[in-house]
Design a protein around this nucleic acid. Structure first.
Length: 422
RNA sequence: GGGGAGAUACUCAAGCGGUCAACGAGGGCAGACUGUAAAUCUGCUGGCUUAGCCUUCACAGGUUCGAAUCCUGUUCUCCCCA
């Protein structure tokens, strides 16, 4: 099966330059995707792009990952309603290294001809001076052409700096450079990148008469219209310090049936047959949530590790299984701590146990931001201690301390917190 | 430069002298039902020492027993005419 066909059935193709599918029929094609080093970790939004590269490499083609050390300094206006803040060089370098490390987990950098490669566009932009650039690159792209891009049109009224306006030329030149120096003939990217990608294609055609191709992936939409990849605490990161393996696993477990049917195609490498089977089994007994589990296991294992996955599964079964206060007491300290890794910890003094829960959860700890909020939670029956619902604010006593040290609390069903008694 | 409209809680958006911590919608949170899903229903959504009190309706003053609502000034936004 060829790459485009593979990506298509997985729902990973939004748009492509005519001829791209045929182009991939040739021997080995080199293709690239750019990542912005705007944070010191990638998040699951970038996972879609990473997966396209993984498929690419699996089919014997060569993936190049471009880290936008230079473009990160300029700021891509695509999909942004406001002018971006520029990052300083130190932050940028730090981010580049972090992102590099994460990508190394997915792609093979040492498998002969089609080994993946990482490049940083800062390397070819750092010594490129302004005059040469506007002469050698700017000359080929008419203003009228640049103005028709959505990223520009949407912003021209509300304000956009020359810096952001020129972004498409900078990214366009990346493509040119990679084409010239690395024989890279395809650019991949999210659908919001279409405009920038096309500028690159145009530049290559006009400057050197070259023919190159592109394919974009769709923006992932949840069935309820919400943004993919967000939880109440924000982005889901690939870095387990920012998003613990347990939370990462839970993110996939919590996906709706509807969404999961799309996710499994995009985020796992399972074949169409395997996926059909899982979906069929899932539909026969949806309450077992085989589908969500299949995705969560597959993705957590690849992004983190089999050990992290084991831990996440164990934690989940203790937290969401039928475990009771009794079961909690049976956990030794090490198990307890690893099960609850990533759950927020709050320290209190042993003598604070005598204060009522309202005070304890707002003043002594910051579980609730105000007593009003705490009261509302109690009124709606949302607070649990050691897995038991609590209505009485004077409920707590020393018998509730587990392992002579911990008290496990819940705010609602899914939000755990731990009080450490010292 | 001349004329007009406006600035209200996370967002949109009522209110035009007391009954306003402020209608409604969206979002968010929680509860019920389930499958840690979706849909649905319900409650909550400024703070506190909570039958009450305090701080909020761009900012600073003023009128009034009483102001988000009236007056003055300031800042900012939008529209029309030059």
């Amino acid at each position: 099966m060829d790459l485009v066909k593979e990506l298509k059935w997985r729902g990973m193709v939004h748009d492509l330059v005519p001829g791209t599918d045929d182009h991939f029929q040739n021997n080995m094609i080199t293709a690239y995707i750019g990542f912005d080093p705007t944070a010191d970790s990638l998040h699951i939004g970038s996972l879609v792009q990473i997966m396209t590269l993984v498929h690419l490499q699996k089919m014997g083609h060569k993936p190049i990952v471009l880290i936008g050390g230079a473009t990160g300094m300029v700021g891509d206006p695509s999909g942004k309603s406001k002018e971006r803040n520029l990052l300083d060089e130190d932050t940028l370098n730090n981010n580049i290294n972090a992102v590099k490390k994460q990508l190394e987990k997915f792609l093979d950098f040492n498998c002969g001809d089609n080994s993946a490669e990482i490049v940083n566009n800062f390397d070819w932009f750092k010594s490129y001076n302004f005059l040469s650039f506007i002469r050698d690159v700017g000359k080929y792209i008419p203003i009228g052409y640049m103005m028709t891009k959505d990223s520009v049109k949407n912003r021209i009224e509300t304000g956009m700096s020359f810096t952001e306006f020129s972004y498409q030329l900078v990214q366009g030149y990346d493509f040119y450079w990679l084409w010239k120096n690395k024989s890279c003939t395809v650019q991949l990217g999210g659908s919001d990148q279409w405009g920038n990608i096309v500028t690159g294609i145009e530049l290559i055609r006009k400057k050197d008469g070259g023919q190159v191709f592109a394919l974009t992936t769709p923006l992932i939409q949840k069935s309820d219209g919400g943004k993919f990849g967000k939880t109440e605490d924000g982005n889901v990161w690939l870095d387990k310090i920012k998003t613990s393996a347990y939370k990462f696993y839970q993110f996939w477990i919590n996906a709706s049936d509807e969404d999961s049917k799309n996710y499994i195609k995009i985020f796992t490498l399972k074949t169409q047959k395997e996926i059909d089977l899982i979906i069929k089994e899932h539909e026969m007994s949806p309450h077992l949530r085989l589908l969500q589990k299949a995705i969560a296991e597959d993705v957590t294992k690849r992004v983190h590790s089999p050990e992290d996955l084991e831990m996440a599964i164990q934690s989940s079964s203790i937290l969401f299984g039928k475990s009771t206060s009794e079961d909690l007491r049976k956990l030794d300290e090490d198990t307890f701590l690893s099960v609850f890794e990533g759950v927020p910890l709050y320290e209190i003094n042993r003598k604070d146990l005598s204060s009522n829960l309202l005070e304890l959860l707002t003043e002594k700890t910051k579980v609730f931001s105000s007593k009003g909020e705490a009261r509302r939670m109690f009124n709606s029956n949302a607070v649990s201690i050691n897995k038991e619902r609590v209505i009485d604010v004077d409920y707590l006593n020393s018998n509730h301390i587990l392992n002579d040290k911990y008290i496990l609390g819940q705010k609602g069903k899914k939000n755990y917190f731990i009080i450490v008694v010292i």
